[in-house]
Each structure stands twice: as C-alpha cells, then as structure tokens.
Design a protein around this nucleic acid. Structure first.
Lengths: 185, 185
DNA sequence: CGACGATACCTCGATATCGAGGTATAGCGG
DNA sequence: CCGCTATACCTCGATATCGAGGTATCGTCG
C-alpha cells in the first residue's frame, strides 16, 4: 500500500523523500502515521527494483536531497497495480482508498470501471460481521449496543459507497469518462 | 488488534484455536483474512505472557485440542486495553471496530463513554485527506472524481458515526448504561 | 475399507513495519 | 554566535504478519 502510494505520488511529479512524506501524511497520516523507518527502506526497495531513480541535487538546500523520479518500469508497475489490485486492496477500506486516490492514473475509463466493479461485488456480497453457534448474526439479533453500532456505521458507509459506485461506473461506461466531476457531488 | 480480539472472544467463554479462528474470521475475516501462521504464534505469545492457559482435552475429537482459558491476568489485560486504547485503536477504523466489538466487557458506562469520546474527538478534528503546494485541499477544490468520491464516502461514514456516538454517549452518561439497545436502531 | 474433506495444530523463512536512535545543514531570533 | 527549529536522510533491532508447507485424526460416503 505504501509502495502504491509512493508510485502514485511520484507519477504526478518527481519529489524528494521529505516531500513524499508530507504527501503521504496528508493522505492517510491522520489514520495511520508513517515513520521514517518505514518510508526510506520502502524507497530503497523501489530503487532496487528499478521502479525509481534518485538524482542528487547538491546545491539546493540542507542535506544531499535526492530527488526521486519514476522510471518507465515504475510507471508500468503503478498501472499494473491499479489495473489488477490484489483482493486486500479491494476489501480493506484503507487500502481501497489508496487505490481510489490514484485510480485516475489508469487512463482508461473501461479499466477504471472494472476496478470499481470489483469493489462493488465485494460490498454486495453478504458480509457476516458476527456469528454465534447457530451461524451468522444479522443486525436484528444483536443485543450488544456497541456491536449494533458497528453494523449501523458499516451500513451507512456501504450505502453511500454503493450509490457513488453505481453513479461512477455508469458515467465511466456510458460517457467514456467525460463529465465525471458532477457525479459525486 | 489480534491480541485484543483473542482476549475478547475468550472472555465470553473458553474455546480452542480452531473455534477462535472461525470467530475471528466472522469478525474481520471478510476485510482481512487471518492465516494460521498469524493466529497460533499469537496464542503462544499470550500464553507466554500468562494471559491464557491451555488445557488439553485428549478424548474429545481429532487432534490434541487445547482448550484456551483466560487467566485473571488475561482478563485484566483485556480491561486495561479497552479502558485505555492506543491512538491507533482510535484512528484506524478496523482497529476501532474491534475495540467496539468488545467494549461491552468494560463493565462501566462511564469508562465506556470516555473511550467513545476519544473516537468522537478524533472524528471532529479537521481531517485533511489531500493537499497540494498551497496546503490542504478541501472537497470543493478537488477535481479528481475518484478523490472526491473518497471524501464523499468518508463524510457519510463520519456523519453516521458521529450521530451514533452522540446518542450512545448521552445514553451512557445520563442513564448509566440502561436501555441502550434502543439508541442505535 | 479406502478416499476424502473437515477438524486441529504447528513450523519456518521472508517481508514489512515500528520506534528510537543518529547525522547533517540552513535559517532565524535573541 | 548560540540555541532552536525545520529540513533531509539514514540505520538497526524488535516485532508482527504472511504464506506455504507439514502432521494427524475423525466422520462419512460409496
């Protein structure tokens, strides 16, 4: 997920690690803060895999300041990841939001619609949040107010997302990606 | 989070690993599947910390079948974790739901309200999902339809959860925890 | 009675992340 | 010019998780 976010941000424009760090913090930092010890090794992994290169600019500001650029392989890896996300990217909301945040880079409305349809399919399958010996518990049989709260919140999210997904998929498939800003508002 | 969930389920009643696995799968498995290689080492860690003991029942069914029981230390650890969750348990929705799923074990409405208030405070602080060079971007300035979708969904969740939290906290603080099942429905 | 699936448990290597520490420089206020 | 903060990068040990593999038993269907 970190890998996806790094590739996604660098697709917009080259930047150095510290700037990347600020962008990542703005994306998911309030939910899950990111430490240096996670970011810099991740950058090194991507560099070792040939997905990005660093260009040292000595005279700019303080420290050596390596500006990070995506390679063609890096751009290809981003597109591939966006086109065929793993199941965890679909089911886990944090990861899914990261996919969504960069899905515009997948410059093909049909391919974007395919990804949204996968999320749609996941949300539409009956999710069993709790169960006892008799099997899954639906909301009505749950007496614990905290657990019924979970279901209440999960359903509200689900409703909002399903509505948005339906609109968005329709726009992508019929209009070919034009006039999209109006659908979500 | 796994630790919390294991302690929470064993608080209800003793069970063996495989049963625990099914309960965990029902709780968060559709979002994030749990592998054996995660569960059994986690059980061993809890056993090593003295939070649970296993009692081998040889004659029951197939394999040795260790029934897991919480120790008094385990019950204390669960209560402590529920009473003072770490910040990640508050901010990350997956973790927060796990806290909620077992918060009833914290058998004190005032303490439960304190935990809910922490989540309330987190949701009420202005979350900046994206930003550019000029600073955080509010929803109106975002042109990417996928990103505005993220904000749309996040706001719907937030609204539903805020409403529920306000009701629930009020019920816990004024009624002392009685008549709670009516508030969330 | 033999194959098969479900139950039940376990190990181990690879990987990702965390958190705490460190090293610099630039710029600014006092 | 001293201290402070922000910028910018890095290492390293500890830990948690994943995934793929293994072992054994029980019940049942044919």
């Amino acid at each position: 997920m970190l890998k996806l976010a790094i590739l996604g941000f660098l697709r917009d424009r080259p930047m150095h690690g510290y700037e990347l760090r600020r962008h990542l913090a703005a994306l998911t930092g309030h939910i899950r803060p990111l430490s240096d010890g996670t970011l810099y090794p991740a950058i090194k992994r991507l560099e070792a895999d040939g997905l990005l290169v660093r260009e040292t600019e000595p005279g700019s500001t303080a420290a050596p300041r390596h500006t990070l650029h995506l390679t063609p392989e890096g751009r290809a890896a981003l597109l591939e990841r966006l086109r065929t996300p793993e199941q965890l990217d679909i089911s886990d909301e944090n990861r899914w939001f990261t996919v969504l945040a960069f899905l515009r880079h997948l410059d093909d409305p049909a391919a974007q619609a395919v990804v949204l349809r996968r999320r749609l399919a996941f949300l539409e399958e009956p999710a069993s949040f709790f169960h006892d010996e008799a099997g899954p518990l639906d909301a009505e049989r749950i007496t614990d107010p905290f657990r019924s709260g979970i279901l209440l919140i999960a359903r509200a999210t689900s409703r909002a997302e399903l509505a948005w997904l339906h609109d968005m998929i329709a726009a992508l498939e019929t209009q070919g990606g034009r006039d999209l800003t109006a659908t979500g508002a």
